[in-house]
Design a binder for these strands. Structure first.
Lengths: 202, 202, 202, 202
DNA sequence: TCGTAATCGAGACGGTACGTCGTGTCTTGCC
DNA sequence: GGCAAGACACGACGTACCGTCTCGATTACGA
């Protein structure tokens, strides 16, 4: 009697369409791998191994490593980060920055994002994905915060994009150079600079 | 008569010490390779091939890829970039940014720097080098510009580091996301933001 | 009025039984593929692609690659080769060999046969098919020729099988080592050896 | 104290030249793999795994699978098969055939040879190797036997090549169709046919 | 007359192997 | 001891097929 092996839970096709189980397993495996070994240890080969998936299944749905990283990051971000609304840009920035840096430090997200940027320096497709797909999304998210500030008269509407750019650059710099310690005073000073808030006021 | 064999340009040991010819050949080859093929095509293997060097020779003198990249970038930067002194921070920034972006666009330096940052996301040694050796150098250079502005009363001395940080982040962001086009108005607006210069004045 | 959509030539099920159109399309595609790309390029995947068939349809009707190859070869051979009857074994062999080699050279049949033999070295099922189904068929065909010769007293009846074996081996050797050029004198000499015909007589 | 692990017998480079240890390990692994799993289970990947060798090392020295198979077969054959010299061609053939078939049955050599022929139907390079390198070697070996017979007057010198061809085809046919049983009477009858020896004489 | 059953095309699935590239280490033999 | 050269074990790359699966549609046939 051929007993059903307990470990025999091979995931199979569910017809001529994408299998959400496989997708989930792959994203989970990718996330875990980045958490454990960072970009250096991140390979499609190992993701496939952990997900119990075939490499072609990964390549079928994610043309480049960057596409996979973007999906992993998106899932992560959606479930963790929310834009604050404190009533003032500089305190919004303060809150958001501390949350973001913590998010980057304490979840795999920091590694994922670093991987994504590194990958973009290697592959043209990844660079395009970063520039044309990922960055605009981030920009749009953050713009809301600055638009509210503009509506409140804290900053000129014409400076929204430039200030958002400064803010993103500030965050990238600290992420990429591994300086995400929660240095509250420094973050506060920079938040004031970006929001145009003179020091001292609360 | 010592016949000059046409193919006989093998570079050999000059005794028990570093051969500067080999070093120069390696740095030159690395620079050229990054210029032609970017970080994606940059490998120790190929550098050795082009330099007519043995791989162990490279590993002997540069423990990591990042060390090699730093040397290549240093040689490059020294020979090209000078800090402007126009008498006002915002016009200093305008001039320097346009020069820097042009430098990054038109020489291999942009590729080299991108490679260095990418490498730092892969290798711990490279990350340390970037954070502890490379970044402080850049900071120090730029501080002079901002210190002069502080002396002129354009910005508070306490904000120098934060403004320099903002400025570096701004440049990194554009380099890494491949947006180095010479968009003069955008650069000018950002220069004003960073220098605290209200729009409209010259 | 049943409008004839121009692109609507999808072949569908005709009920709970084998669709002869599908079978024909698959055999045709397999034949064409072997003709164009030989055994190296012969894959079930590609056959399905060309035939516009689903892979399971192929696997349903032909358990192994060899089964498919046998069917393709059978259809091919039936339509082309006839046994000569010249009145003498050695001239029968001469005629048949030249016809066979030409057949192998000028139609896909050579490729098909080579594929079949190669496949038999990989798969046990194919080996069995070759040994127990295919080879006996060939033997039986050729035996007629030799039996007639035995009746004419050209060769002893006891040697029929051995001589047929020699003849088949001779043909296989030339097919598998890609030496099917129409070298008339060599073929004639070998035909004489196999038929026991002393040289010089006609 | 970093004790040397007992399993730490990684084979390394011995300088800029071929390492005979690696070569031997690869040939041995290839032989064993073919013995165990036949051509179906023979892959460069698995050979590398068993030999503790890198795939590039194999590809460096053997451009095609066929080249590797030829070397494995050659080593095998040299160490096992010797040409008999009984004083009569038909008994030479009898002895050699029985030895050869036994060799093919009882050592991996049969599998190796079958693999080689199969491979030649897949890859042009393998076909060339078989036709231009391997077969001529076999032919030359066997010719000696037939030349001696010609000197003794048993067969005409003009028929040597043709008879050798018949003999090789006979052996191939039986190898490829898996009929290597030691059927002494059939072998004897065929040996007589090829050697032109009338039945009954000793 | 209408379910049931087996067919069809399509294509995703987990895998294995392909042949290539780069890694960092090692050794040789010359200088 | 530095040097060019290049072999070595390793492992990732992205691709091609394998043989299995599940789908939704299309018929034929039996209840």
């Amino acid at each position: 009697m051929p007993e059903t092996s307990p470990a025999d839970r091979r995931r199979s096709s569910i017809g001529a369409r994408r299998n959400p189980d496989a997708e989930a397993a792959i994203l989970t495996a990718a996330r875990a791998l980045l958490a454990e070994r960072g970009y250096a240890g991140f390979s499609i080969e190992e993701v496939a191994r952990r997900a119990g998936a075939g490499k072609p299944t990964i390549y079928r749905w994610w043309a480049t490593k960057a596409d996979l990283l973007i999906d992993v990051y998106a899932a992560e971000k959606a479930s963790h980060m929310a834009l604050p609304d404190t009533g003032a840009l500089w305190s919004d920035l303060l809150a958001y920055t501390r949350a973001l840096w913590g998010f980057w430090r304490d979840t795999p997200s920091g590694s994922i994002f670093r991987a994504l940027i590194a990958e973009a320096q290697t592959t043209d497709a990844a660079l395009s994905a970063l520039r044309d797909k990922f960055l605009p999304d981030r920009l749009r998210d953050l713009c809301h915060m600055f638009e509210r500030a503009a509506e409140r008269g804290e900053i000129p509407a014409s400076e929204i994009d430039d200030r958002v750019g400064l803010y993103i650059g500030f965050n990238w710099l600290h992420l990429l150079s591994d300086r995400l310690a929660d240095d509250a005073p420094a973050i506060e000073r920079t938040a004031r600079l970006i929001s145009g808030q003179p020091p001292g006021r609360t």
